[in-house]
Write a protein that binds this DNA or RNA. Sequence first.
DNA 1: TAAAAAATATGATATTTATCATGTATTTTT
DNA 2: AAAAATACATGATAAATATCATATTTTTTA
Lengths: 225, 225
Amino acid sequence: MSKCESCIVREFNSLKALTSEELRRVSACKTGKTFRKGQIIFEEGETLNGVYCVKDGVCKLTKLSENGKDQVVKLVVKGGLLGKRSLITEQKTNLSAVALNDMEMCFIPKSEIMNDLKKNPEFTMTVLKRMAEDLKDSDESIVNMAQKSVRRRMAETLMYVHDEFGTDDEGYLTIVMSREDYASIVGTATESAIRILSQLKKEGVISTTGKRIKIEDYNSLKWME
Amino acid sequence: MSKCESCIVREFNSLKALTSEELRRVSACKTGKTFRKGQIIFEEGETLNGVYCVKDGVCKLTKLSENGKDQVVKLVVKGGLLGKRSLITEQKTNLSAVALNDMEMCFIPKSEIMNDLKKNPEFTMTVLKRMAEDLKDSDESIVNMAQKSVRRRMAETLMYVHDEFGTDDEGYLTIVMSREDYASIVGTATESAIRILSQLKKEGVISTTGKRIKIEDYNSLKWME
DNA sequence: TAAAAAATATGATATTTATCATGTATTTTT
DNA sequence: AAAAATACATGATAAATATCATATTTTTTA
């Protein structure tokens, strides 16, 4: 397994604020884990005893609603850190994490990272900044959910997936998700999500091949009401 | 103006992690500010050069949606700290703050508090923990907005206001808000909010005197679908 | 590769919520 | 206290979205 010191992934997250000495220690105690598409990384209510650093692949963070439906709260790709919040509050995790495709991750035990958190103010500050950003994003999501139409939310989701995670060489969105996943990001019934994507296809805004989606007219999405 | 060292309000927020030496310094540079009901404390997009500590009164944190409507993201009472996020990220604030009744606050300049944030790890950790809690609350809000009916959200809002901010000696909710405010917490049209509250009144779940609301049957709210 | 399972598609309909209109009550101002 | 402004209330209707039913397509499994 590669060493943290020479791993570029850490540049994308808070671990970049660790000293090379600290990195060596983290590297020594981390364990590599792989997850297959659809596999559960952890579930709401579990006690996490460390954080996951995503080296490759994508996962969704979901929360179960009282109506029995999952709501996707966030998508996490390479560089993302999972389990920060429960590490800090020392509470059980409030979200579930499920792999959307095959994933490679590193697991860093709580004890090690907590030590760094207590002794390296720069690291703490970086984590704090990231958390503040997450909070801003969440606040934005609340407004979107409360004030925008399902169609508009779907448009924004497509743009988000496009901007954040990019496209393959054929122009299809890199992240491939089921319509059910889209529904649970947008916060709507699966049928409604399917219907809207079908409409967008008819309108020529997107095209699809199986589950794969290609954005044909980004501007239409942008101005969609 | 009273001194921070002898102010009990700080026990409710992250400032409790400051040393008495730090508290003295904060106390020396803070300024008292009062706001009248309806007054704007700060607006989305403003640059804040410090944080507000709420000594008395209540305010709402709102975000303007593209459709022109405000969405209430959070209510803040005695002990709350406003402006943490933009202090940490050094960005303009993403929310507006408006007083719901007359308020008394202390304003602590950025320079002072940033100093503490950098030098007192316990303080940083406390801020981090609070931010993690806020994030958890926000994630919960996203799910609520996405998956629950307007009626259910109204019920939860009433219970939240009851549990978090209490009732007066007659049993009315301490925080008095307009129906428009309720609508913008629940994320619905003002008429819909009014309609639902009227229904709840007819059903005997709540009673009202002017804008004041009294919860008559908490259990009905709890089990409301 | 055939069969089974899962995911997607779409019509019909019901339900929820928003919007518009208009009237009444309450609060604020003069 | 009267006038004006604001907030609340409610009916009628339109629009958005969910639900149920049932094909069809795609993917997975045997």
